[in-house]
Design a protein around this nucleic acid. Structure first.
Lengths: 208, 208
DNA sequence: CTCTCGATGGCACCCAGTGTCAAGCAGTGC
DNA sequence: GCACTGCTTGACACTGGGTGCCATCGAGAG
């Protein structure tokens, strides 16, 4: 198996190349905007060929959106790990918090994340991709919720909608994320967002 | 002004061309799938030039998503027209119902709409566009809600999230739309979806 | 030393989308 | 009938994203 994350030398070299590409891309995109940067620009500053770029990233959008993918699985596994008797609003709050805490752990890492989030939210093409990802997370969360509360997701709208409400909360937090906000501030925003959807989250799970 | 919907002869001719293009596109897309159809295919069956296609539609996706645009404004104006003392869950339910009733008025029109909805929901690229549209509607609804309840949308997450919950309900309805469902059935699905989010919708508006 | 395997670069190609220009074809005034 | 105007159309060239294919290079394995 040469597919382990800390595996062979070749594997580490691959990751190094990917990171180089990603850094060049994010730097250019954040300063010039999405449409004003071509893939040729990116590979030029990274010192590689156009073809290589597309071996590492499926599309220009993919560079930006990629690191969101793993966050999604984190969210779902976190929900699965929460105690079964926890009300949905609390369990989902913890699940959604997972990627947020990951963003905000180190101050410089946080600022970089915030810039990427801004880029995504302000660029229609990226925003669309982000929403697509969200849909996948939502399905994962919905399946987990349905299992938790023993509901049939094909007839009961609750699981999908509850998962969607959690995503709305996440969106609200990201939207309100201001420069310099520390982890405590993010937690506060998260609490406020979940306070809005909690009534439906918890009422919907009980009366079924 | 030559921009009225039933205006000049030239205007009607334009609409005729657009409809021809749209019909050809929808027929091909629905049968072969989105990626398997090129713009050249579409213009070939419609008997026009490639360039003409892009004069009527901004992109291949646009053909499918276009007719959703007007629905958005309908939703917002409907919400604005609802009595001010109506609870948010009721007002929003009526707003969201607007495009749904439009889809389901004539049986054949309904079936055509349903197929397009399926196409959108099953094609990632189209789904992303659809979500982008939704974001715009959501902003419109949020602004209207903020005005209704005298809230500050820049600090209070309620308006955006309430609008988002209405969209979740719409999504849930479309997702569950089965072949042959009549208007009554759609109304039932809508009621069930709104029953899930109503607690948060109405609680959030009061306690502020 | 050679053989293999993975990574790379270069090239041709497809397709979406845009700018530009030369028609075609109303309607309008002379 | 004729010229002028405005709108629509088609043709062509061009940019840019994305893919398939093949030649090459370097790192081990035998």
């Amino acid at each position: 198996m040469a597919t382990r994350s800390d595996g062979t030398l070749a594997e580490r070299k691959r990751q190094l190349v990917a990171e180089e590409l990603r850094n060049a891309a994010l730097m250019l995109l954040a300063t010039r905007g999405f449409d004003a940067v071509t893939v040729d620009d990116i590979v030029a500053t990274a010192g590689m060929s156009r073809r290589t770029f597309f071996r590492y990233f499926a599309s220009k959008e993919d560079v930006v959106v990629r690191f969101l993918a793993d966050m999604g699985t984190d969210v779902v596994t976190e929900l699965a790990a929460r105690p079964k008797n926890e009300p949905p609003s609390v369990a989902l709050r913890h699940a959604i918090w997972r990627p947020l805490s990951g963003c905000a752990d180190q101050p410089d890492h946080a600022e970089r994340s915030r810039i990427v989030v801004r880029l995504i939210l302000d660029t229609p093409a990226l925003h669309a991709r982000w929403l697509e990802r969200q849909i996948q997370w939502r399905s994962g969360l919905a399946a987990e919720l349905a299992a938790r509360h023993d509901l049939d997701p094909s007839t009961d709208p609750y699981p999908q909608m509850a998962a969607g409400m959690a995503m709305l909360a996440l969106d609200a937090v990201l939207q309100q994320w201001r420069p310099g906000d520390d982890e405590h501030r993010l937690a506060e925003l998260t609490d406020r967002a979940f306070a809005v959807v909690a009534p439906s989250l918890d009422a919907g799970a009980d009366q079924r």
